[in-house]
Each structure stands twice: as C-alpha cells, then as structure tokens.
Design a protein around this nucleic acid. Sequence first.
DNA 1: TGACGATCATTAGAGCTCTAATCTAGATTC
DNA 2: GAATCTAGATTAGAGCTCTAATGATCGTCA
Lengths: 143, 143
Amino acid sequence: MPASERLGSHLKRAEQALGATKSAVLKPAGLTVAQYSALLHLSGNSGISAAALARLCGVTPPTMNTVLKNLQERALIERTPHEWHRNVLETRLTDEGRAVMADADARAVRVERALAAEFTDAERAELVALLGRCVAVLERERP
Amino acid sequence: MPASERLGSHLKRAEQALGATKSAVLKPAGLTVAQYSALLHLSGNSGISAAALARLCGVTPPTMNTVLKNLQERALIERTPHEWHRNVLETRLTDEGRAVMADADARAVRVERALAAEFTDAERAELVALLGRCVAVLERERP
DNA sequence: TGACGATCATTAGAGCTCTAATCTAGATTC
DNA sequence: GAATCTAGATTAGAGCTCTAATGATCGTCA
C-alpha cells in the first residue's frame, strides 16, 4: 500500500506541520508546545491536579509530571498540597507564568487564526467532522 | 480562543489517536511507529543513506540516527560503507528485518484499510485536500 | 593546488513521551 | 476495624525528537 494512499500519512504530515509551526512561533515566548498546552489548560482550571491536567492535555500523568517539573523550575507554576486531600497537589500559575502565557497565547492564536482563515465556515465544519470520524474509527480499531 | 474552535486541537487529537492505535497494533510486531516508518521506506529504497531516509520519514538526521541505532542493535538492518563515497553508509534490511517488516506492515495496513473504509471516495479526497491546505498555510506561517 | 561549499554522519544536551511499578491517602465494603 | 478499591504522585527505564556543533568526504572553481 503506497504512502500516498494512506490517510494516516496525510494526517501525520499535517500534524507535523502544525507542531513545527507552533514550536517555531512559541520559541520566542520561551515555551515548548507541551508547556504551552499545560499552561493553557491551567489558566482556565486553576488549582487542578496534575492527573486531571494530564487528561485535559491528552498525555499520561508521568508525562505531565515531566512538563510540570520544568515549568516549576522556571517558576511559571507553583504546586501546593490540597487542604483536605493531602495526597493531591494543586497546581497554579504564578504571576510570571500568567505573563508568559499571555505572550505565548497571542502568538499561538495568531497561527490558529491564519489556519482558520484558510477555510470557509462549511469547510472548517467539514474538516472537524471528518477528523472526528477518524478518531472514532481509530479508537474502535484499538486492540 | 476556546480549544474547540482551534483546528489545531482537532488535528492534534486525530493524530494522537492515529499514533496510539498504530503504536498498539505494531507492539506485537515488536516495532515502534518510528521504526516501522523507517523500515517501510527502507524496504522500497534499499541502500539509501540515513540522511535521505530521514527526509523521507520527515525527521532530522540525528533522529533517524537514533532509530537506526536501535534497529541495527536488533539486527533488523545493516549499514555498510558506500563503495565510492566513503563517508556515506548504505542502509539495508536484513532477512530478519524483512520478515519483521512484513509482519508489521500487515498490521499497519489493516488499520489504514479500516480508516479508509470509514469514508467514501469523495470524502477521502476531501479530507486529503483539506489537510493539504492546512500544511500549505502552516508552512507559510512559519517565521 | 588550494579554498570553498555541499552532503553525510555523529555527538551532546534538552525535552517529551510512553509503560511498568511503587507509594500515598482517602473511600468503600465486609 | 480491616481489607479492598480508587485516585493521585512519583520513579525508573526505554525510546523519539529537536537544535547546535563537529568532523569527514567529495566536488567545484579560482
């Protein structure tokens, strides 16, 4: 089966282009794509646990742990024990984290707007629908 | 800008699902997705250089070097100096590499067929076209 | 001949990602 | 009350990925 017939190849290429562009535009902000993703979901869910944040970002807890460790070393986030559940660490943005996030978000949104501007409303909806069906069939095929 | 409006989020989720499924079906064959990709292009381009293989797979030469090192340790490939260009290493599948590749390919193609079967010809063409436009605009946006 | 440029290979270092395993703490159940 | 279950955090280890830098080789061109 030739690569050009494989939908997966096209999907992968598109995602690679997305990752490369996001990575490039986030570099001046001093964040990786994974770090931006974590801060983005964190900014809308202050005090969330690392495990919950991992679920939002679609990664595993150890992966999120790695990312958070780097963010904490740079003082962009802080993690404090939960009042009741002593086992849970609440994660929050610091003031500096909020500032870096605002800068990075502006850059990332610029890419998203450029991407969205390429398509009509109908095309965007069509693309989202097709991608959704890809996810559904792929999850069904998982052993 | 909410995540659900970001085309990038949908793209990323689809690619994550693809990667997770491919990774799961390739596991019994003993290959990672990156290793399968390398062997696949290698099977159609025997004697190719690592740098050229990296270009085919869409990764950097050091990345391909890492992947090839692991494949070589498992004796799935062999690398011999080029006759004339002493600096170039020719990479080839071993007999065992060919066998592993055949097994892995059957599993991977099964996923691709399931994915393709979800769509009509028109839908497939539409998806490929939309993804292609994504790549174009993303590469244009790269600083 | 010698300098330059292109291509390839490789190393070093940082970061992301996973699986598997372990540890803790709270909740449930018997 | 004790065993079990669930959920979160963490460590260990393997693998992929990148950028940056280095070194080797070949071809071209002055």
